[in-house]
Design a protein around this nucleic acid. Sequence first.
DNA 1: TCCATATAGATGCAACTGCATCAATATGGA
DNA 2: TCCATATTGATGCAGTTGCATCTATATGGA
Lengths: 153, 153
Amino acid sequence: MTNRPSDSVVRAWARLERAHRAALATVEARLKTAGLPDLAWYDVLLELERADEGLRPFELQKAMLFAQYNLSRLIDRMAAAGYVARAASEEDGRGQRLSITRSGRAIRRRIWPVYAAAIEEAVGRHLSDTEAQTLADLLGRLHDAPRSGAPPA
Amino acid sequence: MTNRPSDSVVRAWARLERAHRAALATVEARLKTAGLPDLAWYDVLLELERADEGLRPFELQKAMLFAQYNLSRLIDRMAAAGYVARAASEEDGRGQRLSITRSGRAIRRRIWPVYAAAIEEAVGRHLSDTEAQTLADLLGRLHDAPRSGAPPA
DNA sequence: TCCATATAGATGCAACTGCATCAATATGGA
DNA sequence: TCCATATTGATGCAGTTGCATCTATATGGA
């Protein structure tokens, strides 16, 4: 069984929550003020833009750690807005393939400067570059494999 | 105006999102499986338990970075469940004072072991103690004052 | 081939969140 | 004192999320 966490682990978790909530609030507020769509929309657009062949919804789901039903409806809205296109998958009769539209690319480009400034405000402003890098590294460790001995199941 | 963020800042932000989402998912899943209330309930209970004189809703709001309307309704639910009590504030006729009930304390104590194990699973398992401490420190910097020169307003 | 089981994605319904706004009290001048 | 403005907390309504479940296709084994 998993053990009790040390004090520093508990503190790290508590601050992860707080820091995330604060930063997210800043970012969402800036986007809203600028009349731009939600952060999640940006993330979807970016993933789709990076994937040359488009993506299957379940791939996007894993990439974004988004709940299946949630993503399904997010795509509904984004398709309705004309930013993504759904096409039946050719490999799998159950599935579909998503791609970004021209106007999806356009809106993503329009979001970025506002988003970037918000990131700088919420994160960059508070840390040196080296610190940001250390932070990124440590946070990166929080997915995937645990730290030590325990064989991967 | 705020400047463009460096690459490491953007990476730190992206991982903050991912790490938080992953960790939160783990924690919420463990609580749910155990048939226990939401994480937010725990946070409220803990804050109230720490405050000897109880707390005003707006204080809780700041402590938790929770939206006002959101907290208002959260307290509704928790009061309905019998975990918190509302009393009219004596200093301020508009306000109220919240306190934790006996059964609120009881449920908080019941939640903790499950929550602790989840924190260890989501965070502790992946980091050494020193790393956890560094992470906590860096995350702690993300609220409040910016890093350097810029006078506070 | 046929069936049991797994995977992809959608959806009805209840709960929760965000937004806008409201009522009530407090506060600080003129 | 009186009024303009700020603060505390609640709430109607629309939009989103979570849960459970459903349909359809895929896959692997007997």
